[in-house]
Design a protein around this nucleic acid. Sequence first.
DNA 1: AATCAATTCAACCGCAGGGCC
DNA 2: AGGCCCTGCGGTTGAATTGAT
Length: 258
Amino acid sequence: MEAPLGVRKGTWTEEEDALLKKCIEEYGEGKWHQVPLRAGLNRCRKSCRLRWLNYLRPNIKRGEFTLDEVDLIIRLHKLLGNRWSLIAGRLPGRTANDVKNYWNTHLYKKRMVSRQEELKDSAQKTVVKVNVIKPRPRTFSKRLPWLRENSSTMFDDIHHQQKDNSIILSKPSPQTAAALPVLDGNSQWWETLLVDEDASCSISGSGEDPIACNVWSEDIAPAANVGESFAQGGQSGWNEFPLDVDLCWDLFQQEALI
DNA sequence: AATCAATTCAACCGCAGGGCC
DNA sequence: AGGCCCTGCGGTTGAATTGAT
């Protein structure tokens, strides 16, 4: 349905790449429906776009992912889920397709294996079940007035920099809270920002010592600005937990305002 | 050397969202 | 308001490559 009869499919040849590259350099990106005609290619527009974005575009980084990139992918995937284009946007030179393929071939399997090993280990220890806060991506309409008019003020309200440069995210003031949108008719978005429906984990602890939850520190707290683990027990979860708010806010605004 | 299995990754497909008329 | 078109995204496929027997 998308590709007219007779349109070429499959691996691109060097000649096709050269034609496409020349066309984009001449006319610029966009107007993909015109590209096959302009370039003199017997390909559908989607194929042209994909080839350009994933392969021909300048500054595309090829080869092995570095440890830093892998670390970032894991943490962003925890934060954003399978939103590969957003994750790729944080990795200069990497495409969404690259990130997705890397995740599916390398990371997904590794994580499944390590999770199973963790479960085996934890089954042999004393297990305490606690609720763990995990992030959940939100999509906001750009028309929301509280985003347009008060975003910087509200950001300052909930975001506090410590002497050691770590960031503490605190419960919003009543004014800010009142300006924030209501979800599901009765809860504020920020109350459930880090909550996942099936979010619970099994961790081991002993005596009356506070329990540090490994899942929290490993899964969502970025390496920078993390000074301690966080355990939630009958509280809202807003009382002083360390978090890379700049990253969250950046992603949040990217989603909301672009 | 030949065959089969597993892995990788480029490319395709279908769908959703947004803009325009 | 509703339909059409375009773009972009995520899931999936399958050809090519690599490894094991």
